[in-house]
Simulated scan of single mutants.
Amino acid sequence: MAGEAVLKYLTDTNRPYSCADVTTNLRGTYTKTAVQKALDSLAEVGKIKCKLYGKQKVYAAIQLDNTDGDSDIEDYDNQLKNLMQSITDSTNTLKTAEINLKNLTSAPTTEAAINEIEEIKKRLENHEIKLNNLRSSTEIINPVEKNKILNDFDKFFKEYRKRKRICNDMLEAILEGYPKSKKTLLEELCIETDEMVNFKIVTNSY
């Protein structure tokens, strides 16, 4: 009968098992339904113990000649709790490592960043030279060309403000769960704000 086989297996192994474990370890001799009925019946008559872990029932034989049976079950209970906490800690550590890895792989290399900065500096110098020439020039600009320049300026200025707003929104969203100050976050991300570098856009009326 399934009851005798289940009781013998739990007694011989002297370890707690779920219904699925017992069914598998009996190598399919009895169906899972038959094993479950046998476990419930044995628990009702007090031949085995049943403990509930979440939604899963775990069964263990009562060893009449071993007074350490209850402490063994408590040990397994504590081991399970410790393992669950360890899994939770490891999962959180993994998530943090994945975020850091993503940030590192998406950031430019130091060499690439230096080259980009140098390129921007050269472009800025050329624009400043051109701007100074225009300011000191007495040449009258064609109205069509002037309108095009002004329209381009408006377009680029709006895009600049839009991107700056998006960047600020992203930083504020990160800061909601960031344990340090905004200044520390900016330093870690190697970000410089307009205010930090004294960057201002001249918007004289025209």
Score class of each variant (00 low, 15 high):
Gly3Glu: 00
Lys8Trp: 05
Thr11Trp: 09
Asn14Arg: 11
Val22Thr: 00
Thr23Phe: 01
Thr23Gly: 05
Arg27Asp: 14
Arg27Ala: 14
Gly28Phe: 00
Thr29Phe: 05
Val45Ser: 07
Cys50Leu: 07
Lys55Cys: 10
Lys55Tyr: 10
Gln56Lys: 12
Val58Ser: 00
Leu64Arg: 12
Thr67Trp: 07
Asp72Tyr: 04
Ile73Thr: 05
Gln79Asn: 15
Leu80Glu: 05
Asp89Arg: 01
Thr91Tyr: 02
Asn92Phe: 02
Thr96Val: 10
Thr96Gly: 00
Ala97Lys: 12
Asn100Thr: 03
Lys102Trp: 06
Pro108Trp: 00
Glu111Gln: 15
Ile114Arg: 13
Asn115Pro: 01
Asn115Glu: 15
Ile117Glu: 10
Ile117Asp: 08
Glu118Gly: 04
Lys121Asn: 14
Arg123Ile: 03
Glu128His: 13
Ser137Thr: 02
Ser137Ile: 06
Thr138Val: 03
Ile140Asn: 07
Asn142Leu: 10
Pro143Trp: 12
Val144His: 13
Glu145Arg: 10
Asp152Val: 01
Phe157Gly: 06
Glu159Pro: 06
Lys164Thr: 02
Ile166Trp: 08
Met170Ala: 08
Glu172Gly: 09
Ile174Cys: 10
Gly177Gln: 13
Ser181Phe: 09
Glu188Met: 06
Ile191Phe: 04
Ile191Arg: 03
Glu192Ala: 10
Asp194His: 05
Tyr206Leu: 11
